[in-house]
Design a protein around this nucleic acid. Sequence first.
DNA 1: GGTTAGCACTTGGGCATGTTGAGTGCTAAG
DNA 2: CTTAGCACTCAACATGCCCAAGTGCTAACC
Lengths: 335, 335
Amino acid sequence: MSEPRKLEVLRAIVEDYVHSREPVGSKALVERHHLGVSSATIRNDMAVLEEEGLIAAPHTSAGRIPTDKGYRLFVDRISQVKPLSAAERRAIHSLLEGPDDVDDILERTVRLLSQLTNQVAVVQYPHSNRALVRHVEFVQLAPKQVLVVLIADTGSVGQKVIETGSDVGNEALMLLRSRFLGSIAGTQLALLPQVLPSVVALCPPELRNVAQTLANGLQALSDTSREERILMAGTANLARSNVDFPLSIGPVLEALEEQVVMLRLLSDMGDDPRGVTVSIGRENPYDGLAEASVVATGYGSGAKVGILGPTRMDYPTTMAAVRAVARYLSRILGG
Amino acid sequence: MSEPRKLEVLRAIVEDYVHSREPVGSKALVERHHLGVSSATIRNDMAVLEEEGLIAAPHTSAGRIPTDKGYRLFVDRISQVKPLSAAERRAIHSLLEGPDDVDDILERTVRLLSQLTNQVAVVQYPHSNRALVRHVEFVQLAPKQVLVVLIADTGSVGQKVIETGSDVGNEALMLLRSRFLGSIAGTQLALLPQVLPSVVALCPPELRNVAQTLANGLQALSDTSREERILMAGTANLARSNVDFPLSIGPVLEALEEQVVMLRLLSDMGDDPRGVTVSIGRENPYDGLAEASVVATGYGSGAKVGILGPTRMDYPTTMAAVRAVARYLSRILGG
DNA sequence: GGTTAGCACTTGGGCATGTTGAGTGCTAAG
DNA sequence: CTTAGCACTCAACATGCCCAAGTGCTAACC
């Protein structure tokens, strides 16, 4: 049996199944694709594919459907990225226009991606490790409550209310503000842990406690700031594509709601040199996503964009869309 | 026929249907509820109820299910709010602990509410009309880009990137900042539209253009600030409760994703003096929610909290939960 | 008048049975 | 290695049947 044809058969099965949603049989296969052989030969090939765990039959007299492993092989070795249509390119281009506000851009991106792919789109807030501290503000909200605001030169703003053990006077707060600002303005957010202690140390002893608390707050802001948040759109697509599997949609929605799960998932997916990374079905660490695949890639300086959908999805097109969107996103937001 | 019993029958039908999910017949009714009459009598009553459009039969030989109108009557005149269980009270109480950060509180609230009711919970960011301007910051991001930050004394922070037509020097920006800050610090956000123009007018002529642009930005921030956003949780509950109606879940997810739709919906629901407002099925303006009900109420100074679920829901319990959560929310966040 | 028992009638759901068609695996020949 | 042929399997569909739940109606009852 010829190895190339075997792959060709797998490819045909995947493609047919993806858009018919029905197990595909040997006869239908030879009709729709002009492989130069008869259905009997295909049957033999399919038997082998099944033995190798690449396809499976729901029941005896049904056609075959790809397994997770089958999709994996398809994605890795067979499929080639499909170019986007002109309309799609245009839609992405129009992202370039409009306001430069990060929030706006991300929101529009995630919507666009969900429409492009008909899946749930997810985007992580951009990493701002290289971002520099632009401004620091301490605002007294209540006697023992201070709002700490950290503004980066990227335009990202982090805020947090912290409790100061004791009552800080407004003048003291102003003093601390200018101290902090003077010392850390212009430094990278990522370097804050190294810089902050010395600022605290230089404060007058009676303010040192408060200064430490504030420093902790700033620290926390720089860590968890916005890059630990995600935005998503198109959850309704889940209902559309899964009319036959209404069962599995619950766990998927749960996973999507748990930002922690999604962040974990996204960051666990290494960066494939080929452009996009795909995680298929049970390859996913989270059980609720056993019937789902994630197609994602990095953009900017390491944050992720991607989509989530049923394992039975059109990988080539989806991968193309994700890749294209990520590229534009990188371009707009800069490295 | 006695009017009170008729209502009693409707109540019984609603209650049974809500937790059995099956049309309820006359015989089952007399068995489960000790109404002092026979099934034949109930049948007569049911015929009347059907005539009045309060209940309907899916097909000839099936029991009856409540119509939207039936639920409406039930909610308005029959049901009495069920007291929460001790465990539920405890869960809500524990909201009082933990950080005072508005975002944290809202997030925990919405999660709690969705668990309490097994529905999708929605909460609108608190209205901050009474909020005072605490701080204003202009940060230059690029030659023609300025980040405008508006901080209120409630701890809410709004930010927006705006394009200034021309290049503003840093000194000019600092000047403008102190002008604005001096004039509007301490004023209510709601009053900004009246105050801002005079600030602009007092600026040196060469800066007036920029000042106007910045003022517009501030204006926009105070309008749309955060009260125009909503937070939600528990979308997975949709899948759970709707195993039989997998069809309708799509449109509902769409509606939930459109913050505009939800905001409209929430604000269209007047504030019922009895505590909570209910919008049932087709009473909802949005078509996708024709099979859904919304139970909501105001908290704090006018923002809304509530839940969304299938028309077939346990209204008394749900209403109790929403009301209780709203009360605690008001207490924590203050009027 | 309201209530009730009784009864004929409707109808969806469950079940057993039969039929069909897609699809397989195997074998033997090319 | 490929292919034609064939027996076999099995989900999906259809058909017919019966049953239980439920209704609406009528006539008697209090």
